[in-house]
Nucleic acid binder design. Structure first.
Lengths: 127, 127
DNA sequence: CGCATAGTTTTATGGTTGTCAAACGATTAG
DNA sequence: CTAATCGTTTGACAACCATAAAACTATGCG
């Protein structure tokens, strides 16, 4: 089990976080992660209908901006929201964005069209 | 006195708002507007050290995304945060972003370097 | 080792963006 | 109308980005 390099909590930049969240695909990834805690890269990629390299690009954006954390277990990589870190650095920001995403019709429409499956077969991790 | 076209509250899109806020110059404009309520275009432009056409570009982004409202008085145009509209559509989002901007060292450093002047000679408007 | 799986990196491409300069439009003052 | 002011629009340019195909890395299984 390994952990990929992530920015320290203190070095998370607001503009980078906002830009990471400003993309529809990434915002939906974040919304899904807020529901089911952890998700594999390929899982999200397939559900969102983007190429795996495109998905990897978004994972990187989310990781480098400090929004998600990635841990590797074997061949799989699980992503997870850095809720505590984001809350510590920018209190209330993530929650308001998530609430806003649920209030935004466009985002909701996309989420409904795809459906939020894959809650199955995701091994829980810590808690 | 005239009002420029702005998106209706219901049609404000989250991703567009986030993208508008994800630029350092625009984020600083928003922070300043949160302090002094109204500001002229040229005022902000000069303080931020960007060309007036660049400033105008940012104003447009902020206006079209629904973040600010612009009213014209003679030759001057005053910008103002659409606090109520944003709060109605995305409760807590603007406040948390503003709080985050104050907590973000990079943004703070820029704000400090420039200083927040120009609170003079800005005619108050309504309440 | 060979083979399959899971992601990343590279390369390429079309689109967007931030920036400035210069031209334009709109408003006010004479 | 002319001149000056304030801001927008257009043109140009470099940088970045979202996307996908292909090549590559890394892990796991025999």
């Amino acid at each position: 089990m390994r952990l990929l390099p992530h920015p320290a909590t203190e070095s998370i930049q607001l503009t980078e976080v906002l830009r990471a969240l400003a993309d529809p695909v990434r915002l939906e990834i974040v919304v899904r992660l807020s529901v089911q805690k952890e998700q594999t890269c390929s899982g999200v990629g397939e559900e969102l209908g983007v190429h795996k390299s495109t998905a990897s690009h978004h994972y990187r954006m989310l990781r480098e901006s400090g929004v998600v954390m990635t841990r590797q277990v074997g061949r799989l990589k699980f992503m997870r929201l850095r809720r505590d870190d984001l809350d510590a650095r920018f209190p209330g920001l993530l929650d308001s964005v998530l609430a806003a995403a649920r209030a935004d019709d466009a985002v909701l429409a996309t989420a409904r069209a795809e459906g939020v499956r894959a809650v199955e077969s995701v091994p829980a991790h810590g808690g």
